[in-house]
Amino acid sequence: MNTPTAYTERRPFRSDMLLLRGLHHHVLHWGDASMQTPERPLLVMLHGWMDVGASFQFVVDALPSDRHVVAMDWRGFGLSDWTASDAYWFPDYLGDLDALLDSVSPDRPVDLLGHSMGGNVVMSYAGVRPERIRRLVNLEGFGLPDTLPEEAPKRLRQWLDELKQPQQLKPYASLDEVAQRLMKTNPRLSPAKAAWLAPHWSEQRDGAFHILGDPAHKRTNPVLYRKAEAQACWQAIQAPTLWVEGAHTQLSQWWGNRYPREDFEARLALVPQLQRARLEDAAHMLHHDQPEALAAVLEDFLR
């Protein structure tokens, strides 16, 4: 494959490294604190599983340029540190987000956006720290199917077995191959955007390009997902909340029949001040598929 002309940023980001809870986190800035006002506070964007903060470049470019935007690579992803242990725990993401806001917006509420895994984190966080959020945006953070206590022995046994096995992510021979991998995962991603994302999503070492993610993320999570706990957090959200999904996203692609749409709708109905938006010709990576349409929805909601 011949590398296409890569996407050109309208607003290039500035990189920073913040020490949060003992780990260095890569933080991306579009604009600076001088742009913040009570009506247009800091907008914080948080990516999903096996993604990076730079993933939001396309939608940031489509937003008005008068807003300070921050994105962070979660621990174990992008250029942020990996944990010293061999596992990742959901509460740590909440702790890292809390520490991030202490650093970048200690005295003002923020507008908070999360995609997928990041969407799940921000929904829980907004219920725990409602005073820190002015507006909340969830891009397809569906949560997970509920689990039963009797699943614990099997889940823990599987985790213990996997701890004894080294985890690996597939290396790629070139950035072209990384871009092809991105487009295979998301057929709606254009070659130009894939070419731009590839060097932000991988790094070259030992003669190959490696995805910027800790392989330990592949291990089974030994902690059961408890729907009732998530619902309690969602119910406690005080900020006006926007739910955005792609018209072509199907819950069954991840969970089969274990997570019926009716279950999710019942959870979403618990959010007190909820607005909804649906983007046509978009699936789960809607911020890649339709960044201009998403930016228009966001600007209308955040204004």
Rank of each mutant, 00 (worst) to 15 (best):
F264H: 12
E265M: 11
V104I: 11
N120A: 11
E229S: 00
T220R: 01
Y125Q: 03
Y225W: 15
R205I: 08
A293C: 13
T220S: 04
W196E: 05
K154G: 15
H115T: 02
H284Y: 12
R129N: 00
P109T: 02
V244R: 01
L148C: 02
M50V: 08
P41F: 07
P145I: 00
L139P: 04
M35R: 10
L182F: 06
R75L: 11
T185I: 07
L169Y: 10
V223S: 02
M117T: 10
L302Q: 13
A192E: 15
N221V: 00
V60H: 06
E9A: 07
N221P: 02
M17S: 13
W196M: 08
R21C: 05
P64Y: 07
G22P: 13
S174E: 07
S55G: 15
A228C: 03
T220F: 02
D214S: 06
E280Q: 09
A173I: 10
W49Y: 10
R75A: 12
M17C: 15
A87Q: 04
G78N: 12
A173N: 11
E262K: 06
R303F: 04
R258P: 00
S55I: 04
H287T: 08
L169M: 09
L42I: 15
R205K: 12
P187W: 14
Q273T: 09
L43Y: 06
K218F: 15
D146S: 13
W255P: 01
R135Q: 14
E131G: 08
P64M: 03
I237L: 02
R67M: 04
M45C: 14
P38T: 07
E299D: 14
L144W: 05
R181V: 05
N120K: 03
W254G: 02
F264Q: 06
H210F: 15
Q253E: 12
A99W: 13
M285A: 15
W243C: 04
L28Q: 14
R10T: 14
F301R: 11
S85W: 07
A239D: 01
S190D: 11
D107L: 01
E9H: 03
E177K: 10
A173E: 13
E162C: 09
A194E: 07
W49M: 13
L268V: 09
L148S: 05
A194D: 07
V44T: 10
L189S: 12
D92S: 02
L101F: 06
Y93G: 00
T147F: 00
P41R: 06
A293R: 15
Q250F: 11
G213Q: 07
G31Q: 13
H26S: 11
L224F: 13
W82R: 14
N120F: 00
V121Y: 02
L18E: 12
F58N: 05
L100Y: 12
L144H: 02
L156S: 09
E150M: 02
Q36Y: 04
W254M: 09
A295D: 13
E229A: 03
L42A: 15
C233K: 07
R67E: 06
R135I: 12
V297M: 03
D96Y: 04
G127F: 00
D102Y: 04
L156N: 11
N138Y: 02
Y225T: 01
R21P: 10
L212W: 04
L28V: 10
G127V: 00
Q158M: 11
L270N: 01
L175Y: 01
V70S: 00
P4V: 03
H287S: 05
L113D: 01
P166I: 06
G76R: 09
P64R: 07
A194H: 10
E299C: 12
G22M: 14
